[in-house]
């Protein structure tokens, strides 16, 4: 199997706290990979490393064969030109219309004339089901539509790799399912490598080809959906069966906790 992204020995520290504890994994090309994990397990930090917003303390990340941890900013920009990112809140620029938002990366990086550009923007908007919303401002759209517009912008330069940060967070089940379908379509029709960071199980079960599960900055599981379902690791079972991890105090312990020592 060909790999789009290969990570080895990735370590990150915020001060004394180690957030990622030496991760080694690879992400297959042309498939949807889900990075799964509870809140605070380091999955957002990992995503920021993959898209080059953070530099790791140790380790290497190679994207389509290029080692990105040692690149300079201009070199990194050429790598970024071939990836698209959907942020959690879509991160559209609020001062511009949807059409201008989608056109922004094209305007910045190519010298396409204005009429062709308009056609490209309409194509991208149509692809995500937002035809006719060109002249709306982000604040006039619903959460799900903003995310779709964010995807259209991420697709603007026809990337090879797409990253999604919590695509279904804060959306109702129907809208979330619509987004999952769109992710499906992007993989099947455009053969893109898709990396999704999420903790929403229903969408994991629909879209994932390959799963990487993180727990406390470590890889708990890497493999297929069937493998995850069949796993009997207690932390994975807890996650899949939605069990809380609250510890049960003895009366003495509880007294000690509330007394503050």
């Amino acid at each position: 199997m060909e790999h789009a992204i290969e990570v080895s020995g990735l370590r990150t520290r915020y001060g004394d706290r180690e957030v990622l504890k030496g991760l080694t994994f690879s992400i297959p090309k042309g498939k949807t990979t889900v990075i799964l994990g509870g809140s605070g397990c380091g999955k957002s930090t990992l995503l920021k490393h993959l898209i080059g917003l953070l530099k790791p303390s140790e380790g290497s990340i190679s994207i389509n064969g290029r080692e990105i941890t040692t690149l300079t900013e201009p070199e990194m920009d050429t790598v970024r030109g071939r990836m698209g990112v959907l942020f959690q809140g879509a991160a559209l620029l609020n001062s511009m219309t949807i059409a201008d938002n989608v056109a922004l990366p094209i305007r910045e990086h190519t010298k396409i004339n204005e009429s062709t550009l308009q056609i490209m923007v309409r194509m991208k908007l149509d692809l995500v089901g937002l035809s006719g919303f060109d002249h709306f401002f982000p604040s006039q759209l619903s959460g799900g539509m903003k995310k779709r517009a964010g995807i259209a912008r991420a697709l603007a330069l026809d990337p090879e790799t797409l990253f999604f940060d919590e695509p279904s967070a804060g959306l109702d089940p129907v809208t979330a399912a619509g987004l999952d379908e769109l992710i499906f379509k992007l993989r099947d029709v455009f053969r893109m490598t898709i990396v999704v960071v999420t903790h929403e199980l229903p969408s994991v079960f629909t879209i994932a080809d390959h799963i990487i599960m993180l727990d406390k900055g470590d890889i708990l599981f890497a493999g297929t959906l069937e493998g995850l379902r069949a796993s009997d690791h207690p932390r994975i079972r807890m996650f899949l069966e939605r069990k809380s991890e609250q510890e049960i105090y003895s009366p003495d312990d509880y007294f000690r906790v509330i007394a503050g020592d």
Partner: peptide
Amino acid sequence: EEVDALVTMG
């Protein structure tokens, strides 16, 4: 995250 979005768009 709009600033991050700008960076990822190069």
